[in-house]
Design a protein around this nucleic acid. Structure first.
Lengths: 84, 84
DNA sequence: TCGATTGTTCGAGTATAATCGAACAATTGA
DNA sequence: TCAATTGTTCGATTATACTCGAACAATCGA
């Protein structure tokens, strides 16, 4: 639980989560042109390791999806509260 | 929002919040005898400045209360999800 | 008044996290 | 095959956070 909260307690990652919620299968480089890709890769990794998102390789790109079901199962209501 | 999540993203503070939810007007030194009081004071401060708890002076002690209404108003469902 | 109780503040040390350039790997398309 | 695209990893730097002893302030009870 603290790990998930920590993953969400960052402005950039919170925005990532909200965009991922609105855009299924979101590529890593979408919507964050001003932030260096190594920085973004770090944030994607934190979210991935916390179990918040899932990545699937699709060609050279990676498509990111929010793990809604798993999160709702582990922490009911949390994601909904964050996304509201 | 990130500030509140950060305040909650610590094991000790999460436990504080849960105890505060169960024990209204909780003194600072209750339940955490093994942790130095300066460390506890730090955690109380983080929660206070994030708007999660409120302190009222009661003699030499301070009684801490969860700010349920304010939190529910600002972030509906969040506290309930955290406390579940 | 004075010792005991309850917390805060300060400062230093340590640990963790964020940032980002550079090099690398994998894939696509021409 | 080869250049372009998409991300990851590495290493270094900087920033932020956690921990905790020591000194201090406020209050209560005897």
């Amino acid at each position: 639980m603290p790990e998930v909260l920590h993953a969400l307690a960052d402005p950039v990652r919170l925005e990532i989560v909200r965009l991922a919620a609105a855009h299924p299968r979101l590529p890593c480089n979408r919507f964050f042109d001003e932030i260096p890709k190594s920085t973004m890769s770090h944030h994607w990794r934190v979210l991935r390791e916390a179990g918040v998102i899932r990545q699937e390789g699709h060609g050279a790109a990676r498509l990111n999806s929010l793990r809604r079901e798993e999160l709702d199962h582990r922490f009911p209501g949390l994601l909904e509260a964050i996304l509201r």
